[in-house]
Design a protein around this nucleic acid. Structure first.
Length: 825
RNA sequence: GCGAGAGUGGCGGAACUGGCAGACGCACUGGACUUAGGAUCCAGCGGGUUAAACCGUAGGGGUUCAAAUCCCCUCUCUCGCACCA
C-alpha cells in the first residue's frame, strides 16, 4: 500500500483539472444554471484563514451542485483598487500596479494550491482598464440621469488614510479600515443618490427570504425609515420653519424649540439681539468639537437661547427657540420641537436651561406632576392639556393629529430616512478616475463617451499628501474642455473602491465582453446569484451598495433582475485563543504552513468540520490533527484493498441481504440521504460527521469477516459511495482513491449518489419505552408493528413490569416506530 | 436605549416540524500490538452510584403524556445602530 502523500496527490489533480479546464462553464439554456459566488478578496499579499474558510465552503457547494448536474458558474477575481497598494508603494517605492499584480499572482497560485475549482477564464481584477472603463461609463449614465451629483458638505475624513469616508465606513467615530479617529472636513465631492432608493431598499429587505435576518435587519436599521410628520412652526415675523417629528401626539406639550448649530436660521435669528455673541460663540464651540465627541451618548446637553420665539401652530403659544448641541443637522430638518415631559433628551435640556414642562400624556394609574418628575414619561397613556384631543389614547392620537395638521395645512405626513447619499470621491490615487472635466467657461463637463476610458497613469511618483497624487500630475489633469476646447482641469479624485465591488458579480457573467459593460444575454442567463457567501462585516457596506447599484443597472437596461443576490450565507470569523486572527494579536495561522504540513484536503476539511459555516470557527491545532487522521483512515481503508477490490463490480444493495450486510446497506443509503440533506442546508459539519460514521461502520464490517465475493462487492460499493460523498470536501484524495479503484475520475466529479428510500428504512426499529415520560427501557420491534402487539410486547418487559407494579395504566401514547409512553398512577 | 442573535459535557459541536440529550471530532483514561510510540487498533468517557434511584441543555415559572425545542419572567454574553427628534 502506498502511504498517503497529500502533496504529490494534490499537485497531480490540480494539474489534471487545469489541463482539462475542468471548471470552465458556458451558458447552456438546456441546463439549469447555478451561480455560486464568494466575496472576492482584496489582494493584500497572501490568503488568510478567513479566505480558506470562505472559499472552502463555496467550493464544496460548487462541486456538489455540479455533481448534481447543474451548470455551475463559480468565478473568482480581485478587488484590486485600494489604499494598501498605495501605502505599500509609498513605503517601498514601488508601483501600486506592480505590487497589486504580484500579489494577485501569488494569491491565485495559493487558491489553486487549495484545489478550489474556478472558471479562471472569467477572472477579473478591478484595477484593469477593461474593468474600470465600464464603471466610468456607468458613472456617466448615472450623471445623465441625475443620480450622481456634486456638492460641498461636511464629510468624514480619516487623517491617517488622508481621505474621505462614506457614512457607512465610519465605525463608532473611527475609520473602518485603520481605526483612526475620523474628523469632519468641508469638502466638495461626488455623491450617488442612494437615498432615492431608500424606501425600496428598505421594503425589499422583507422580500429577501434567502438572506439571514440579521443582515436584513442591519440594513433596515441602517436605512432607518421612520414615519412621522413635518410640522410648520411660525416665527414671530410670520416666516415658517419646519421640524420633523414622529410624536405629533405630544405637540401640545412643546415648550421650546431647538435648532442644530449648523441650521441656516441659527445665526440669522440671533442677529441684532442681545444673544448674538453667545450664539456665535456656542456655534463656534460645537463646530470645533469633533464628530465622535459630539456623538458621545452622555455628552451633556448644552445650548443657548437664540433671542427669538416661535408660535406653536396648535396652541398659538409663544415658545423660545434655542440652539442645542444635541440636535443633528443631518437628520430630519435639523430643527426639533422639544417636549420635555415626554422626551428624555428634551427633559434634560429643559432642566439644564430651566425651561417649563407641560404634561400632555398621563398614565392610567397615576397623575404626573411636572414639578416632581425626575425623568420624561415616554410610555403609553391618555392625552391631557391637548384641547380637542383630550382623552384619546396617545397612539390613536398620532393619526388624528396628523390628519388635523394636514387638513389645516400646518403639517405634512412624511417618511424620514437615516440613510444619506453615498459620497464616493476619494482623494487617493489607486482607484477608478472619476470621468469629469472642469472648465472655467463650461463648468462641470462629463468626459464624452468616445473619450473613455480615463486611464489611470501608472508612471507617477506617489507621496503622502492630503489630496490625490493625481492632482500633482499635470499630464493627467491638464486637458482640453470637450466642449469649448479651452484649457480645462480633469477631476483628480478617484471613486470609492466599493463602487467596483458593486457590480463585479455581473461582469463575471461576461468578463471578456468588450462591446459594452455587460452582455445582457449572458447576464440574464446567470443572474441572479443563486448563492452568495461572505463575511458578515459587509452586511451594510458592500451588500447595500450592490443592491443599490444593481437597481440602477436594471434601470439602464443592463440587468434583468432587481435584486442581485437570491440567497446569502454569512460565514463567521476564524477565532484563535478567543480573538479574531490578526497580526497584532499574534494568533495567525498561515494557510501555507497547513498546506505544507497536512495538505490542502486536511486544511479544507478542518475548516468545514470544526463548526457550522455561520458560526465563528474556533481554531484548534489538535482538531486539525483529527481531520488529518480521518483522511489517513480513509486512505488506508481504500488503498489497502484497492488491488483486491479492483476487479469487482461494486454494488450498494442486493436482494435478500441480512445481518451485517443489511445493516451496512441501510447505512449507505441513510448516509447519502443525510449528506444530501445537510448540504442543502449548509450543515457541512454534520455532513462530514455522517460520512465519518459510514467510514467507522465500514471498518467494523471488515473486521467481522465479510470474505465472500458478494460482501467484497458490497464493500467496494460502500467505498465508492464514501468517495463520492467526500469529493466536494476533499477532491484530491477522493479523485486519487477513485482512480486507484479503477474508476473514471471525470465521472466522479459529475455524479452525486442517489439513495434508495426503501433501503433507508429499517425493518427493525428501536422503540424508546417511557413510563410517565421517563425513559425506562428500549425495545426492538418490527417497523410499523401493530400497535396492540407492540403494547403487549412492551408491557411484558421486565423493567416495565417493575415500574408498573401496583399502578393502573391510564393512557398509552404511541409514536410510530419511535416511542411508547405509558401513563400510570 | 433600540434592533438582532446566542447560552447544551473538560473543549468544538449534534439533536429537521416537541418524542431515547450529548451524534461526530478533540482532549482524557484503561487495554492490545510493540525495543519504543506522539503510529494503529479495542474499550470507556455529563454528574452521581458497587448497581440502581436520582440530578442534568444559563436561572425561575408554565403548557404538555412528553420540552434543549413552545409560552412568560430573570440573568449573562456576542453583534449591529445609537442624543435619529
Amino acid at each position: 500500500m502506498n502511504p498517503y502523500e497529500p502533496h504529490a496527490i494534490e499537485e497531480k489533480w490540480q494539474k489534471f483539472w487545469e489541463e482539462r479546464e475542468a471548471f470552465r462553464v458556458d451558458e447552456d439554456p438546456s441546463k439549469q444554471k447555478y451561480y455560486l459566488l464568494e466575496m472576492f478578496p482584496y489582494p493584500s499579499g497572501k490568503i488568510h484563514m478567513g479566505h480558506v474558510r470562505n472559499y472552502s465552503i463555496g467550493d464544496v457547494i460548487a462541486r456538489y451542485k455540479r455533481m448534481q448536474g447543474l451548470n455551475v458558474l463559480h468565478p473568482m477575481g480581485w478587488d484590486a483598487f485600494g489604499m494598501p497598494a498605495e501605502n505599500a508603494a509609498i513605503e517601498r517605492g514601488i508601483q501600486p500596479a506592480a505590487w497589486t499584480h504580484e500579489n494577485i499572482d501569488y494569491m491565485r497560485q495559493q487558491l489553486k494550491r487549495l484545489g478550489f475549482g474556478y472558471d479562471w477564464r472569467r477572472e477579473i481584477a478591478t484595477c484593469d482598464v477593461d474593468y474600470y472603463r465600464w464603471e466610468q461609463w456607468m458613472f456617466l449614465k448615472m450623471y445623465e440621469k441625475g443620480l450622481v451629483y456634486r456638492k460641498s458638505s461636511p464629510v468624514n475624513f480619516c487623517p491617517k488614510c488622508q481621505t474621505v469616508l462614506a457614512n457607512e465606513q465610519v465605525e463608532g467615530g473611527s475609520c473602518w479600515r485603520c481605526g483612526e479617529e475620523v474628523i469632519q472636513k468641508e469638502l466638495t465631492q461626488w455623491f450617488f443618490a442612494i437615498t432615492r432608493y431608500a424606501d425600496e431598499l428598505y421594503e425589499y429587505c422583507d422580500k429577501l427570504p434567502g438572506w439571514p435576518e440579521k443582515v436584513t435587519s442591519m440594513q433596515k436599521n441602517w436605512i432607518g425609515k421612520s414615519y412621522g410628520v413635518e410640522v410648520h412652526f411660525t416665527l414671530e415675523d410670520g416666516r415658517r420653519f419646519t421640524i420633523f417629528t414622529t410624536r405629533p401626539d405630544t405637540l401640545y406639550g412643546v415648550t421650546f424649540m431647538v435648532l442644530a448649530p449648523e441650521h441656516p436660521l441659527t445665526l440669522e435669528l440671533s442677529r441684532g439681539t442681545a444673544q448674538e455673541k453667545d450664539v456665535a460663540a456656542f456655534v463656534q464651540k460645537v463646530k470645533s468639537q469633533d464628530r465622535s465627541f459630539r456623538g458621545e451618548i452622555n455628552l451633556e446637553k448644552e445650548g443657548v437661547f437664540s433671542g427669538k420665539y416661535a408660535i406653536n401652530p396648535l396652541t398659538g403659544n409663544k415658545i423660545p427657540i434655542y440652539v442645542g448641541n444635541f440636535v443633528l443637522m443631518e437628520y430630519g430638518t435639523g430643527a426639533i420641537m422639544a417636549v420635555p415631559a415626554h422626551d428624555q433628551r428634551d427633559y434634560e435640556f429643559a432642566k439644564e436651561c430651566d425651561l417649563p414642562i407641560i404634561v400632555t400624556i398621563t398614565p392610567k394609574d397615576r397623575l404626573l406632576d411636572p414639578q416632581s418628575m425626575d425623568c420624561a414619561y415616554v410610555d403609553e397613556g391618555v392625552l391631557v392639556n391637548s384641547d380637542r384631543f383630550n382623552g384619546m389614547n396617545n397612539r390613536e392620537a398620532i393619526g388624528s393629529i396628523i390628519d388635523y395638521l394636514e387638513e389645516t395645512g400646518l403639517g405634512t405626513r412624511t417618511v424620514n430616512y437615516r440613510l444619506k447619499d453615498w459620497g464616493i470621491s476619494r482623494q487617493r490615487y489607486w482607484g477608478n478616475p472619476i470621468p469629469i472635466i472642469y472648465c472655467e467657461d463650461c463648468g462641470t463637463v462629463p468626459v464624452p463617451e468616445k473619450d473613455l476610458p480615463v486611464t489611470l497613469p501608472v508612471d507617477l511618483e506617489i507621496k503622502v499628501v492630503g489630496r490625490s497624487p493625481l492632482a500633482d500630475h499635470p499630464a493627467f489633469y491638464e486637458v482640453e474642455c470637450p466642449i469649448c476646447k479651452k484649457k480645462a482641469r480633469r477631476e483628480t479624485d478617484t471613486m470609492d473602491t466599493f463602487v467596483e465591488s458593486s457590480w463585479y458579480f455581473l461582469r463575471y457573467t461576461c468578463a471578456d465582453y468588450n462591446e459594452g459593460a455587460l452582455d445582457r444575454k449572458r447576464v440574464d442567463y446567470w443572474m441572479p446569484v443563486d448563492q452568495y457567501i461572505g463575511g458578515i462585516e459587509h452586511a451594510v457596506l458592500h451588500l447595500l451598495y450592490s443592491r443599490f447599484f444593481n437597481r440602477i443597472l436594471n434601470e439602464l437596461g443592463l440587468v434583468g433582475v432587481r435584486e442581485p443576490f437570491e440567497n446569502l450565507l454569512t460565514q463567521g470569523m476564524v477565532i484563535k485563543d478567543g480573538a479574531k486572527m490578526s497580526k497584532s494579536k499574534g494568533n495567525v495561522v498561515d494557510p501555507n504552513y497547513l498546506i505544507e504540513k497536512y495538505g490542502a484536503d486536511t486544511a479544507r476539511l478542518f475548516c468545514l468540520f470544526a463548526s457550522p459555516p455561520e458560526r465563528d470557527l474556533d481554531w484548534n491545532d489538535q482538531g486539525v490533527e483529527g481531520s488529518y487522521r480521518f483522511l489517513q483512515r480513509v486512505w488506508r481503508l481504500v488503498a489497502e484493498r484497492a488491488e483486491s477490490l479492483g476487479g469487482l463490480t461494486a454494488i450498494d444493495q442486493f436482494p435478500g441481504a441480512g445481518g451485517d450486510e443489511k445493516q451496512l446497506i441501510h447505512k449507505i443509503h441513510k448516509t447519502i440521504m443525510k449528506v444530501t440533506d445537510d448540504l442543502g442546508r449548509f450543515h457541512l459539519n454534520t455532513a462530514i460527521a455522517s460520512i465519518m460514521e459510514l467510514v467507522n461502520m465500514t471498518y467494523k464490517f471488515i473486521e467481522k469477516g465479510a470474505a465472500d465475493e458478494r460482501a467484497q462487492a458490497l464493500l467496494k460499493g460502500t467505498i465508492e459511495t464514501i468517495l463520492r460523498l467526500l469529493f466536494p470536501f476533499v477532491p484530491h484524495m477522493a479523485s486519487e482513491l477513485w482512480q486507484t479503484l479503477g474508476g473514471d475520475v471525470a465521472y466522479l466529479g459529475l455524479s452525486w449518489p442517489a439513495w434508495n428510500a426503501d433501503l433507508v428504512k429499517e425493518e427493525k426499529v428501536m422503540i424508546a419505552v417511557q413510563i410517565n415520560g421517563k425513559l425506562r427501557d428500549t425495545c426492538e420491534a418490527d417497523r410499523d408493528m401493530e400497535q396492540e402487539a407492540l403494547r403487549d410486547t412492551i408491557l411484558a418487559l421486565e423493567k416495565v413490569q417493575r415500574h408498573l407494579e401496583g399502578k393502573t395504566i391510564r393512557k398509552t401514547i404511541v409514536v410510530p416506530n419511535k416511542l411508547v409512553n405509558i401513563v400510570c398512577g
